[in-house]
């Protein structure tokens, strides 16, 4: 019972704050709404017994990525996003495309009803650090190493880009 209520609450929170993020004119509100969405998603992870992912999700997204966004917004002193002028044509086109995308996605999800998948008696152990660690460092060692190289490259790139002397 409790988990069901939690699901509906978190889902509502996620969708609501996501909408706020898109709609609001104030960039800081956007960022904060998105952080709220991330918390809601982290809560979903907790519900699904993926505690490790939930913690990492908070640390990475809320603790690092969104701080960077906020930081950049503060550095650039963007108190309000400048008014965006858009053509009516592009707007209507966007609306149509977005709506179709939503409907098509829903249609895709509906199709899953026809599938007869029996959920595995999944153990609560899956999301534990130990199991994930084993998967990560045994089966996915090479991608893991490559991800570290990617990080290094991204770090070098970011440092180089933000050098003051560059014009």
């Amino acid at each position: 019972m409790l988990t069901e209520y939690a699901f509906w609450f978190l889902s509502f929170l996620a969708v609501f704050s996501a909408l706020t993020m898109v709609v609001t004119k104030n960039p800081v509100y956007s960022v904060l709404s998105l952080i709220l969405t991330f918390f809601a998603i982290a809560g979903h992870y907790f519900l699904m017994n993926a505690q490790f992912l939930a913690a990492v999700h908070i640390i990475v997204y809320a603790g690092a990525i969104m701080v960077l966004f906020l930081y950049v917004i503060m550095m650039l002193n963007l108190n309000k996003f400048e008014d965006e002028k858009k053509s009516l044509f592009m707007n209507s086109l966007s609306v149509i495309a977005g709506c179709i995308l939503g409907f098509v996605l829903l249609a895709v999800v509906k199709r899953t009803d026809e599938l007869t998948i029996v959920a595995k008696a999944s153990s609560a152990e899956v999301g534990l650090v130990e199991n994930l660690g084993n998967a990560l460092y045994k089966d996915y060692l090479l991608p893991f190493e490559m991800a570290s190289v990617l990080f290094l490259a991204a770090m070098v790139g970011a440092v180089y880009l933000s050098k003051k002397e560059m014009v």
């Binding site: 592009m90 966007s94 495309a97 179709i100 995308l101 098509v104 996605l105 249609a107 895709v108 199709r111």
Partner: peptide, 20 residues
């Protein structure tokens, strides 16, 4: 950028429609 994203989304729609 909107044009690009629009093109991407339309492509995604087409792809999904052909799949379902």
């Amino acid at each position: 950028m909107v044009m690009y994203i629009l093109a991407m989304i339309i492509g995604l729609i087409v792809l999904l429609i052909t799949l379902i």
